[in-house]
């Protein structure tokens, strides 16, 4: 039953961060969220808790304290080695009912975006997806959640006054980690997976870390993206080379993916991924609206194309007119020369 629990809202305290654990490692987005949670907790006069569901992760708990957590609520269980969203949602919902956090934050990753909506339904509370801004309303202490919608064409601010906890998934790379403070310590609360919480609804048969083909566009500071102008798979080798020099990731337009030049993992835009990199290089991409909505929130956009009049060249902060097969090798040379 979706009960409005506004009267009981004073019972809900503390800002929670649900850790993202991948192959046994707590991921960077967790520390970014701890940074954001710290500010919120200070505004609310409460604590930052980091909830970790993982397998043999106790050695990483100190890093959570160094990154801003006051409490680590750890459920260590071999079954958390893989991502079984149903069981994780069951455990998280129980922890929420027991400890009553005021705010729950989770990374807006493929895993976070699968897990947290289940928890929000089970815990009868509101959830805002893909936030890029979080603050506390000084009037009543509500969490104000800002998120882009329509591929970044609007920014909406959302609140959830009558339900606790207030839940949000937050985009990676948007919040700032705190400087590591090795003098910080905290409390560890150890939880466990109850016998009836392993539902047996899902079995993970195989896990494949696809370092060759997969690309973490959401997490990349630099994205080097190519389109039809690259003329083929070989063109993308050149982009990969540039991406390696700047520790970036390779993106692609739909046209390039549909032509089979690069796998779908790389696609940026409406039917691919929405990205928010610091620098976006668009090489030979004309910039159909479906592509623009996936990348227009990037901070600094550079376009390279023969045609100066394409939508992307118009949008770009720096538009380089010319043959990208001459420009990119020259750019690689120039960047390497330091």
């Amino acid at each position: 039953m979706l009960t409005n629990n506004a009267e009981a809202r004073e019972e809900y305290r503390n800002i929670w961060v649900v850790a993202e654990v991948l192959a046994g490692e707590i991921q960077k987005v967790t520390y970014e969220l701890l940074g954001a949670a710290r500010g919120l907790a200070e505004a609310r006069g409460s604590e930052v808790w980091c909830v970790v569901l993982g397998n043999q992760i106790s050695s990483q708990v100190d890093a959570l304290f160094h990154g801003g957590a006051d409490v680590a609520l750890v459920v260590d269980d071999p079954s958390f080695m893989n991502f079984v969203d149903e069981d994780q949602a069951t455990v998280l919902t129980r922890l929420i009912r027991t400890h009553k956090p005021e705010v729950v934050l989770c990374g807006a990753t493929t895993r976070g975006r699968a897990l947290i909506p289940r928890v929000a339904v089970d815990a009868n509370c509101g959830l805002t997806a893909d936030c890029t801004g979080l603050s506390i309303d000084p009037e009543n202490g509500d969490l104000l959640q800002t998120r882009p919608a329509f591929g970044g064409n609007i920014l909406a601010t959302i609140r959830c006054s009558n339900h606790r906890p207030q839940m949000a998934t937050v985009r990676p790379r948007v919040m700032n980690e705190l400087p590591v403070d090795t003098s910080r310590t905290g409390r560890v609360i150890t939880g466990k997976l109850e016998a009836d919480e392993a539902g047996g609804l899902k079995q993970i048969l195989k896990v494949f870390q696809d370092s060759e083909n997969s690309v973490n566009l959401a997490d990349a500071r630099f994205i080097i993206a190519g389109g039809r102008g690259l003329k083929g798979a070989d063109g993308f080798k050149m982009l990969k080379d540039l991406a390696e020099r700047v520790h970036g990731a390779v993106g692609a337009s739909r046209a390039a993916v549909d032509s089979g030049w690069v796998p779908y993992y790389h696609q940026v835009g409406q039917t691919g991924q929405t990205v928010q990199a610091t620098v976006y290089f668009a090489c030979g991409i004309s910039g159909q609206i479906q592509h623009l909505v996936g990348m227009q929130s990037c901070d600094f956009i550079i376009a390279i194309d023969r045609n100066p009049d394409t939508p992307l060249m118009q949008l770009a902060d720096v538009a380089v007119v010319g043959d990208l097969f001459e420009i990119i090798p020259q750019l690689i040379k120039e960047i390497s020369r330091t």
């Binding site: 991502f83 895993r111 048969l205 195989k206 896990v207 494949f208 696809d210």
Partner: peptide
């Protein structure tokens, strides 16, 4: 997933 894929039943 961002880092690859898994196969689940």
């Amino acid at each position: 997933h961002e880092d690859g894929w898994d196969l689940c039943a």
